[in-house]
Every structure is written in structure tokens, then in C-alpha cells.
Design a binder for these strands. Structure first.
Lengths: 157, 157
DNA sequence: CACCTCAGTTCCGTTTTGGAACTCGAGTGC
DNA sequence: GCACTCGAGTTCCAAAACGGAACTGAGGTG
């Protein structure tokens, strides 16, 4: 697949989605963040077919998002753990949780609550600017071409 | 599809993915955040087939993520704009951008830069706890069942 | 009148997916 | 020793989703 965008440059979203952009992968990661590790547990928890699951886990391992670790010798068996690259997808999952809670929640409210260990509060993490600490929304941000692609001076987008 | 999870409860990630969880939808949204609105522009920018695009836009409209707005009368023509529900997906897209930049960037570095209008800095927004302002990672958070589902006094079945 | 624009539709052959059964190695109960 | 269980896959086939390309419809434009 191409995954190209404006100016013939492959965009970061497209790059990210080439790894996690299908119906099952983000559910697998959701379970991984819940500390699910075993093939059978992923399969039961998600409702994915075993075939698909083997396929997706294999891809995640090839992409360096998860690693396949032997946890037992005799019958040799493996489990799947997030790598650092995988753990770094946490904001994506949490953002999806937040949106799901705000816009798709049923009558019972959010099915799960997230607790921030450091401050002990039930919390819904938000996106902020690391320089000024303000919460950011789409409206506050503008995009421009990166340095390597910018035409000499500045890009008029 | 089922989209159920632990305890027979549909999880928020699954609910969110039932709307945005396919190969194309998040790319459509990426372009929408770039202020793309027209059918032809989405189609060219993403490389999706017209058929698929019509299908996905229709679904996004039905789900209330985008709205179809007449922008011209004579030939009647429509464009697609994010609703508030749609704009609220910004953290998901930005998180994907950030991850793509950190882990999948090519030799040229990030293809685009995000500028925070309020403080004027090039920035990569991070996830923080709204109570204590600290940046959060998977390690800092724990999940538990929400109030409506917590096994308190009245555990409904 | 021929050609162009834009938002879709229709058709059809190829891919991907879902469902369910099967394999492989090894431990457990009897 | 034999049946049964467990867990991580693999195999096979029909059904669903998808890609490519041409077509439609309402109206400009030269």
C-alpha cells in the first residue's frame, strides 16, 4: 500500500497506521496494556479468530511492538509482551478510551476508570503542550512541513 | 461484530474502534484535521478508492463524526466537515503522529511539525493527568471497573 | 457541441477474513 | 498405557471486504 500524502511524503499517521491500523491490532494492544500476554487469553478476550491473532501478533513482533518470549520449556511455550516501542503507544489507547467514554458510553457510564498512581485520583488524561502546559485541542494547533522538507525559508502550508 | 470484553462489558476502546477502527477512517480524519473537506481531495490525498471513500464518509456521517454540508447549489454539491464529536478525536490523531515520529520516522525526521498557536512553539503534545499535571505513561496508570460495574453491594448478575 | 468538474455508483475479479476443525508436544488422572 | 487436557498455533473453505476502472448525473466552460 502506498501511504503517501501531501507533497509525496509519507506522513507519520500513515506510517503509524501501517503497523496498528487495522480492526484488531489496537484491541490486542488494549489487552496487552491490561497485562494480557498469552495467546489463549488474547483470543478469548478479544473474540478474534486464532488465525487472525497469530497473524497480527506475528506482525507486531516483526514491527518491534511486541516480543515473543519463551515462558516455559517443556512444552515450549511463548507469550507476548510489549516492547518499549509498544508501551509508547499508550497515549493512543488512552485517547481512544477517553473518546469512547465521552461519546459512546452506554447508560452505565465508563466501563472502566483509570487511576493515576502518583496522585491517586481517578483521571482521564488529556493532551497538553509540554512547553506551556496548556491543554491543546485541534483548534490550537497548526501544522507545517518539517525542517528537512521545508522550502528554504518557511512553508506557506 | 461483538466488541465485548472482560465481564461481558463492551469496552470503550472497542466502542471507539467500531467507528474509527479500520484502515482508512483515521487517514480520512487526519486529512479532515488538515481542513480537507471535498470528496475529490480526500480521494487524491489518501489514495483510497472512490467506492471505499463514499462508504467510509457515509459511516462517519451516520456516526455523527462528520457532517455532510451543501456548499454549492447549482450543481448541488456537498462537503464533509468534522463535528464536535469528530474534532474531539484530535488526541488520537496527534498521539499517532507522535508515535510515528518517534518510532517510524525516516532519515529526514518528522515530515510535519505542529505549532502550538498559544505559545508559538513547535511541540509534540503529551498526555498528562489533569489533576496533578504530570505526564503519564502506561506504568503510572492502573485500571479498575467503573462505578456502575464495580462489585459493590448490588452486583447485578 | 465537445470537454471539464465533482460527487458519487456499478461491476467484477482478487484479497482478506471468519469459523471451525486439526496438529503438536507434554502433563494429568486412572 | 490410555484417554483427556492445555496452550500455541496451522489448515481449509466459504463469505465478506476491497481495488480498479468505467459510468452517471447535473451542470459549467471554450
Amino acid at each position: 500500500m502506498r501511504w503517501r500524502d501531501v507533497g509525496g511524503v509519507t506522513c507519520s499517521v500513515a506510517r503509524a497506521l501501517s503497523v496498528v491500523g487495522d480492526r484488531w491490532t489496537l484491541l490486542i494492544l488494549r489487552d496487552a496494556f491490561r497485562r494480557v500476554r498469552r495467546f489463549e487469553d488474547f483470543q478469548r478476550g478479544i473474540g478474534i479468530t486464532r488465525h487472525r491473532l497469530a497473524d497480527r501478533l506475528g506482525k507486531l513482533v516483526r514491527e518491534g511492538v511486541m516480543e515473543r518470549v519463551r515462558y516455559q520449556e517443556r512444552p515450549v511455550r511463548y507469550e507476548y509482551k510489549l516492547t518499549e516501542k509498544g508501551r509508547d503507544l499508550y497515549p493512543v489507547i488512552v485517547s481512544l478510551v477517553g473518546w469512547g467514554d465521552r461519546w459512546m458510553a452506554g447508560d452505565d457510564g465508563p466501563p472502566i476508570e483509570l487511576v493515576h498512581r502518583d496522585c491517586g485520583r481517578v483521571t482521564a488524561p488529556v493532551l497538553t503542550c509540554p512547553h506551556c502546559q496548556a491543554q491543546v485541542t485541534a483548534h490550537d494547533m497548526s501544522a507545517r512541513l518539517g525542517p528537512a522538507l521545508a522550502p528554504k525559508e518557511e512553508a506557506p502550508a
